[in-house]
Design a protein around this nucleic acid. Structure first.
Lengths: 164, 164
DNA sequence: GCGGTCATGTAAGTGGTTACATGATTAG
DNA sequence: CTAATCATGTAACCACTTACATGACCGC
């Protein structure tokens, strides 16, 4: 596929847990080609290049996929703001929590859509092998989003009791 | 406080949702001082500088704390690996999920400790004003961690059904 | 005196984004 | 013909980490 197609695939299929920009994709494709992990071939289109995994690239990929997940340093702008809620006051904090709740609820709708989409594809006989893996990532998003909604409701109730 | 003390405070008090390195802290303190948001005064110690918020710094801080939280692009190495679980196989995926479950369970213990610590401080008559805000951030961590545990158990069960 | 902690800072590198510049192809 | 989309790439910048270099102070 082309670099452009790579980006579309990432956006459309991995969008709920991954993202890449063109400024990252094109230099990386060149580097991977130089390292022999992918192969660049001309496309019918004058403009474009098609890339495909080489054998060594396939090995490298599964190695990476099997490698342990390294923890990223925590950094939550929302928690930072709430921790210092004394400085900003109850209404400002409640607004931030409501926003977070709304975002999580919107995500839940999105996941419901993804579930339906995946189910339709399976019903059509496509991607049956991939379906359970897809579902695991969707389910993770749903669990997290539901947790956020529950936390928000609990915290908004606590703030309402604090005073006016 | 000193830059060193800033880092300790971040590590010890905000550690479960924020982190900063010295390489970030010292240049930032210089810049904030140059902008007039903080004031550098000599410490008793020959070595060290003490910083304190100026009035304009206090205004700037509350402005920032009230500003909307900007969303960070999603990037979960765990989800990426699971999405491509077909390439790595059920046992590798199950191992990753178990690791994530263990990490979340460990976090839950940590949060229980934080709760106890905070309760002890309140019982001692300290920080009573700050306590509810602290609790909100702890509760968020607990909700998320419990969601991760539940998702992991569900997903491990699903993988166990897939085959051997 | 010596090891550990407190303290400050810089340099090199990483991984990423945004904006810009450019052009091919296709649909209407 | 022309607008939208497909396509590639680079430059500037940003936030951040790690490693290194240096030194003060404190307790034993």
């Amino acid at each position: 596929m082309t670099g452009y197609a790579v980006r579309e695939a990432i956006r459309d299929q991995l969008g709920h847990f991954w993202s890449e920009s063109f400024g990252q994709i094109y230099p990386t494709l060149s580097k991977l080609a130089a390292d022999g992990f992918i192969e660049r071939t001309a496309s019918e289109r004058a403009n474009a290049s098609l890339f495909r995994l080489t054998e060594s690239g396939e090995r490298r990929l599964t190695d990476l996929l099997r490698s342990p997940v390294e923890a990223s340093p925590p950094r939550s702008g929302l928690m930072l703001r709430l921790f210092f809620g004394q400085a900003t006051g109850v209404p400002a904090a409640a607004a931030l929590i409501s926003d977070a709740r709304a975002a999580a609820a919107a995500q839940l709708d999105l996941f419901a859509g993804l579930r339906a989409l995946a189910a339709a594809e399976v019903a059509a006989g496509l991607d049956a092998e991939h379906w359970p893996w897809w579902l695991i990532t969707i389910s993770a998003g749903e669990h997290t989003a539901r947790a956020t909604v529950a936390w928000a409701d609990e915290s908004l109730a606590a703030l309402a009791l604090m005073d006016g």
